[in-house]
Design a protein around this nucleic acid. Sequence first.
DNA 1: CGTAGAATTGCTACATTATAACCTAAGGTG
DNA 2: CACCTTAGGTTATAATGTAGCAATTCTACG
Lengths: 154, 154
Amino acid sequence: MPHTHDHGHCIDTAMAAARRLCEERGARLTPVRRRVLELVWANHKPTGAYELLPQLAQDGFNSAPPTVYRALDFLLELGLIHRISSLNAFIGCDHPGSAHPTGFFICHKCGEATELPPDELSALAERLEALLGVRVEGETHELTGLCSNCRKAA
Amino acid sequence: MPHTHDHGHCIDTAMAAARRLCEERGARLTPVRRRVLELVWANHKPTGAYELLPQLAQDGFNSAPPTVYRALDFLLELGLIHRISSLNAFIGCDHPGSAHPTGFFICHKCGEATELPPDELSALAERLEALLGVRVEGETHELTGLCSNCRKAA
DNA sequence: CGTAGAATTGCTACATTATAACCTAAGGTG
DNA sequence: CACCTTAGGTTATAATGTAGCAATTCTACG
């Protein structure tokens, strides 16, 4: 997806969604939280918590780990970002607000992550509930491989 | 699954599979590696690397982190165990040897993890390849919720 | 055999990721 | 304003994972 879209639009949409969600829930989108969200949205690649520290410092924010993790926890809680555990990294959510199962495809060539279609994940979860007799309450799906752009390039 | 099966059998099967695989590939199932595999298989719950250290020490093995991680890496490589990244933990593989996509369901009540049916995961991967135009090369699926035993108990 | 090369382990130090605990400041509400 | 709740600052430390190099063990091959 590199350079194939107007990324400013992605950021704007994300920030607007964040403002709306916070308003709805009576939560405060403080400067640190807003900035962290912007930084996570700076591109479509998963971002590590410690990568954010120097960037926050540059903006004059406090930049000790707890500050970043608190902001990230807040954003996770509201569903504005997701955590990619296999990378210890975070990425913006494409459609925050609506509860949905999440998963990502991460290209090992360009590093970009794409959110997986929730429908497919729900379908899987339902099948598994039926097959295994379990109740699914949370799910993480992290696929890797070559994205369509990188496939074309190769 | 607690107390509902002869777990000794699970361990025996796993160890036999390990011996067979190592023989096939000309790899060495050394004492540390064997012991680490046994410990991971001690139950059906994901085990952290650092939990293994004291247990290895008790058996007279070296117990510095690199020792454990090297053994774990070896076992991962051979597909004898899997890593659960959302828990930073490891768990024995149900059917090592055959290449298969893997995923787990982890019960948040009893802590036990069950391997997901590979067929379902393959089906998802194929659909996603078609939908997104990507090539899937690796996948991690980590679901949480209530397992069937714990559901009955509740 | 015996010795060269590869694989394995021991060991120390360190890197990376994440959290605890406690205090201060800011905002919201009566 | 006075209170309370939430957010942020700060220090220290926990938890997880690796680098790098020396010493040993194994294996293959002459």
